[in-house]
């Protein structure tokens, strides 16, 4: 088979489209709202002072942004924080991590480092042992995005 210039160009464009498609599909698979719903099972989420989320106001390097969560809880066997879901609404995939605490934790506090693709909100939702959900948000400005590319 012999290709002329027009056919060769069409073939090239087609190949490019095929390469890009799975990436786009994957990136939009889960939205932040869907992630919240999957975590809470549709329960009401209270936005109050129970959860405090520590994050820098401006992150120069989106590759490693220090964040911390701290939940106001006595952490006893019958009143403790079960899980904390961390989401970033502007990342290609909003899921960041799910932390599992136990009464042995002593306090519901944890710190880690995460990636942020652009300026966005970080969301932390805590599930308490009494079945209630509490949420905190923090806006972070990102100078250099951290998802490579």
């Amino acid at each position: 088979m012999k290709l002329n210039r027009r056919e060769a160009l069409a073939l090239g464009a087609g190949a490019l489209f095929v390469t890009l498609t799975p990436f786009r599909g994957g990136a939009l698979a889960n939205t932040t709202d869907e992630e919240i719903k999957a975590f809470t099972g549709g329960a009401t989420v209270m936005e109050d002072d129970v959860v405090s989320l520590t994050a820098p106001e401006i992150a120069e390097n989106g590759n490693t942004v220090p964040i911390g969560v701290s939940i106001d809880s006595p952490m006893t066997a019958d009143n403790y924080v079960k899980r904390v879901r961390i989401l970033a609404d502007g990342n290609p995939r909003p899921a960041v991590a799910t932390m599992h605490f136990s009464p042995l934790s002593g306090s519901a506090e944890a710190n880690t480092r995460m990636r942020l693709a652009k300026t966005q909100n970080i969301i932390a939702i805590a599930e308490l042992s009494d079945g209630t959900y509490h949420m905190a948000k923090a806006a972070v400005k990102v100078t250099i995005g951290g998802c490579g590319g």
């Binding site: 590759n63 490693t64 942004v65 970033a88 990342n91 995939r93 899921a95 960041v96 991590a97 799910t98 932390m99 599992h100 944890a110 880690t112 480092r113 995460m114 990636r115 942020l116 951290g146």
Partner: peptide
């Protein structure tokens, strides 16, 4: 912790 790719 269940970790997703957004952790550094």
């Amino acid at each position: 912790v269940d970790i997703d790719p957004a952790i550094s």
